[in-house]
Write a protein that binds this DNA or RNA. Structure first.
Length: 254
DNA sequence: ATGGCTACGATCCGTAGA
């Protein structure tokens, strides 16, 4: 079983690239973020034509998450129950017995801003949600754009980024709180090359310089970690014309 | 110190992303 996550930065713009990537990579599940479309405008027909079921929770212009799967999704839930949020950032579905969460965590703008406070509040709510979901299903995969680079080795230039948004200590503490119930960053279950990132700024030819951050992750429960045989970032779509600024991350399970 | 790109929805610039 292959579980992928990809912040597509507009599913409307990226649809041809998404369909092409699905045809090649053949994931069983893909979590999408920043779809930026209302549900009635979601490109369902094209995705079904490609052999996928789709669950989605979107809004105009900003945010929006989806889960595409080869087999039917069950018990689909949008948002974090009990956490009031106008932003469409969370979608859960059970696929082949695995509880899958597609997460678009807040960006936070800058340390100390109002959006930063919202980011930290949001992470606290997510931590509680992950615990309750994990209690219901020991096979849990929480995949998405977390907007946190967990360690300095996930940052191209840790000195330049020190204390900044995505790497600040409160954000990293919030990240570790997500892992506290025993979840693992699937990427770090394996030996990895240095300087692997999942996002590169559109500006300053960041991709060609590999000036990136690793902020897209697939978290797995111990039960799924035991079945995990690999986790990679696929940089290929980032090399295309008019790419998303994020690359897909793919975790494989036996 | 600033802006650099890209997408979007409102106009012909502002907001947001990271």
């Amino acid at each position: 079983m292959k579980v992928a996550t990809w912040n597509v930065n507009s599913i409307k713009v990226r649809l041809p690239q998404l369909l092409e990537w699905l045809a090649g990579a053949q994931p069983d599940v893909i979590c999408l973020q920043e779809t930026k479309v209302e549900d009635h405008k979601f490109p369902l027909a094209e995705i079904e034509q490609a052999g996928y079921r789709a669950s989605y929770s979107g809004q105009k212009a900003y945010n929006g998450v989806a889960i595409l799967s080869k087999t039917p999704p069950q018990e689909v839930v949008a948002g974090i129950p009990g956490f009031d949020d106008d932003h469409k950032r969370v979608l859960a579905a059970t696929i082949d017995g695995v509880r899958v969460l597609s997460l678009y965590c807040p960006n936070g703008q800058s340390v100390g801003s109002e959006k930063y406070a919202y980011k930290l509040r949001w992470f606290a709510a997510l931590a509680g949600y992950l615990v309750s979901e994990f209690k219901n299903n020991s096979q849990l995969a929480a995949a998405g754009d977390f907007n946190v680079a967990p360690e300095d080795r996930d940052v191209h230039d840790p000195k330049a980024w020190e204390g900044q948004i995505h790497v600040s200590e409160p954000e990293r503490t919030a990240w570790r709180a997500l892992l506290a119930p025993g979840l693992k960053d699937s990427f770090r279950l394996f030996e990895q090359p240095e300087k692997i990132f999942s996002w590169w700024d559109y500006r300053r030819v960041a991709f060609r310089r590999n000036a990136g951050l690793r902020i897209d992750h697939v978290l797995v429960s111990p039960g799924l970690a035991a079945r995990c045989s690999g986790c990679i970032v696929d940089k290929a779509p980032r090399k295309l014309e008019r790419p998303s600024d994020h690359a897909p991350v793919v975790a494989t399970f036996s």
